[in-house]
Every structure is written in C-alpha cells, then in structure tokens.
Simulated scan of single mutants.
Amino acid sequence: MSINWTGVFPAVTTKFTANDELDLATFDLNLSAQLEAGVNGIILGGSLGEASVLSDEEKFTLLSHTLAFVNGKVPVLLNIAEGTTKRAIEAAQKAASLGANGLMLLPSMRYNASAEETLSFFGAIAESTELPIMIYNNPVDYKIEVTLDMFEVLTQYPNIQAIKESTRDVSNVTRLINRFGDRFKIFTGVDPLAMESIVMGAHGWVAGLVDAFPRETVAIFNLIKENRIPEALTIYRWFLPVLELDIHPKLVQYIKLAEVATGIGTEAVRAPRLPLKGEERSRVLKIINDALAERPVLPVGSWGIKAEVEA
C-alpha cells in the first residue's frame, strides 16, 4: 500500500447529533461534497475532528465507516494524537487492522517532550506499522517543533513520508526542499498561508475551510499546479477572510458554522466546546455570508475527482 502524496486532503470535522452521538448521515453528506469536488485524501480525527473528545470506539467507527463510504476513491488517514507511546502504537495497529491507508502523527500529547523523546516516540510508532505516515509539525498549537535536524533522523524510517507543515513560517517549505529534496512530501497545514506555500513547492494542502468550500479549495490547488496563478490568486483573495477562521482557537466552531452556511454540516460540537452565540457568532457569520454573496464562478477544469489509492 502506498499513498500518492499530492493534492487537497481535508481534515474533516466530526459531526454530532443533538444527543451528542456521531451523526453519520451528515458526515456522509459532507464526504460526498468533498469527493465530488475532487479532493485527494481524507484525514479523520485531527484537531478539526475534535480528536481530544472522541472515544477510541468513535474514532474507529468513523474510520471503518469512511473506508466503506469512500470505497478506495481516495486514501483515508487516521490522526494519531495520544499521550503515551503504548497507546499510539495500539491506535496505529488498530487503524491498520481496519484498513486505514495511512496515519497522521502528532507528538505525544500533554507532555512537552524533548527532541530525543519526540524522535523515540515517532520512531517506535513507525516501526510498529507498515502504514505510510505524515508527521504533523505544529509548534504553535502543540508546543513541540520538529526541526530540520530531527527530520534528518526520521529519514531512516521509510514509511515516514510526508509532513504537515504548520509552523506558520512559509520559508520552511523551501528549507525542507533544500535539505531533503523529494524525500518528504510537504503539505501546507495553515489555510491562510496555503497559496504561498504551494507556490513555494508544497506538494499538498491539509485544509480546513475545504470542509465548507470544497470546490474552491480544490480549484486553488489545481490552478496553482497548472501554473494558472492569476486565476488561483483571484479565488484566493476572495477566500482569504474565510481562510483566516482556520487559525483561531475556535476554528472548529467557526468552520462548522461555515459548513451550515454552505449546506453540508451542522453546528453541533462536543463539550467543553460550545456553539457560537451573540456578537461572536454574528461577526463570524458576516465573514462567511459576505464571501457567499461574492462567491466566484470557478474556471472550467479546476476541480473534479482525480485521485485514488495506489495499489
């Protein structure tokens, strides 16, 4: 099993019912919109997927359900965000047994590990599975940076193949390419820096606002890769105020509100998160509605189903 590490990989939100159970019907509605738009992969249980409040049973239910629904059209990755190496290995092995196509891997949660400890954590998980792995490098939110020297150590693991680059330093895309060439596939993980990162050579985009605007997100990526920069820039400039919702602590609530506005989601979140209300809700909704009022007509050929899991 291998993954074609390119294109748009949505970090999908987890849908909940009013009774705080998994809402698989609405989840499927959103998945259908992602596939129709031509995304290249699906990532489950990330920050946007409210991983910290999902039970193991819910994570693996989502994985099994998504694999069946997607039916091989695109690779399905499960995010691993655990506090101990033992639990992370168990999650990785369970994901593999259920048929996951790959993993996205965060450093150990709830402990500010040293570089040695972080490398040991990543290495132990990589050795425990044959699944392809994307390392999620987000020192802003998770307080541990995977440096270039650390990635040098990780080159010894052939299944560590991709990086979700979320340092918020666009130059890091160039640093990674200069240091490692094509050894790691680089995905931008910060929506309001996406176009800049892709122009600088990022191979893909782990996107958030794609959950509400799948066609526009795929169009931007495809147009850049086709060197149709002015067309991509027009859409990106329109999209930027919405994309900036991705870098707020309440990104889950903000993006779910956008999903409601575009008809492919609900506002339901799991406590301790609470739905937006009052002035904050009005302000975010205005950003979304202003964008919808000026939603661009997309260029022909800029989106459509293109990717599948490689045998």
Rank of each mutant, 00 (worst) to 15 (best):
F16V: 05
V206T: 08
D182A: 15
A212I: 01
K306P: 00
L54I: 05
N101E: 10
M195C: 10
V252S: 11
T14K: 03
E130H: 14
Y254S: 08
P296T: 07
S197G: 06
S114T: 13
D211T: 10
R175L: 13
L257F: 13
Y136S: 02
L245T: 01
H248C: 14
L67P: 02
A202Y: 03
M134N: 02
L131Q: 04
D23C: 11
N112K: 14
Q156D: 14
V146G: 04
I305Y: 14
N227H: 13
D20W: 06
M109F: 15
E58Q: 13
L119C: 08
M134C: 05
L44S: 04
S32P: 08
L148P: 11
L106D: 02
W205C: 04
I288F: 08
A207D: 09
L22T: 01
V53N: 10
A124W: 00
Q34D: 03
D246C: 14
V309M: 10
N159F: 11
L245A: 11
L257W: 12
M109E: 10
M134W: 01
L240K: 10
I144F: 15
D23N: 13
F69R: 07
L44F: 05
R237K: 15
E117Q: 09
G38Q: 04
L77N: 04
W238S: 15
G265F: 02
L48H: 06
A232Q: 06
A37F: 05
R215I: 00
T61P: 04
S2Q: 12
P10E: 09
Y236T: 05
P192N: 14
E267R: 14
F16T: 05
E259V: 03
S114Q: 03
V39M: 07
E152A: 14
T217W: 09
L29I: 12
N159L: 11
L285Y: 07
G263F: 06
P139G: 11
P241K: 11
H203W: 04
A95R: 00
A293E: 08
L106V: 06
T26I: 12
V76K: 00
L119K: 02
I224P: 04
I288M: 07
E231N: 08
G38K: 12
V206K: 04
S120C: 14
Q161D: 05
E152G: 09
F239T: 01
T85I: 14
D211N: 15
D20G: 10
D191N: 08
T61C: 06
L105R: 03
E130M: 12
G49V: 02
K15Y: 10
D149F: 11
Q34L: 12
V173R: 00
T66N: 02
G301T: 02
E127H: 04
G201V: 03
G99R: 02
S47W: 05
S197T: 04
M200D: 11
A68K: 09
A271H: 14
E226G: 11
P241D: 15
V140A: 15
R281T: 05
I80C: 12
S128D: 09
I255L: 15
T188P: 02
F121D: 01
E50P: 06
A96D: 12
V199N: 03
E294G: 09
L22F: 01
R168E: 09
K164F: 06
A81Y: 12
Y142H: 15
P272M: 01
T6G: 04
L22I: 00
S302E: 10
S55L: 07
A271V: 06
G204E: 01
E58I: 03
P249D: 07
E50T: 03
P299G: 11
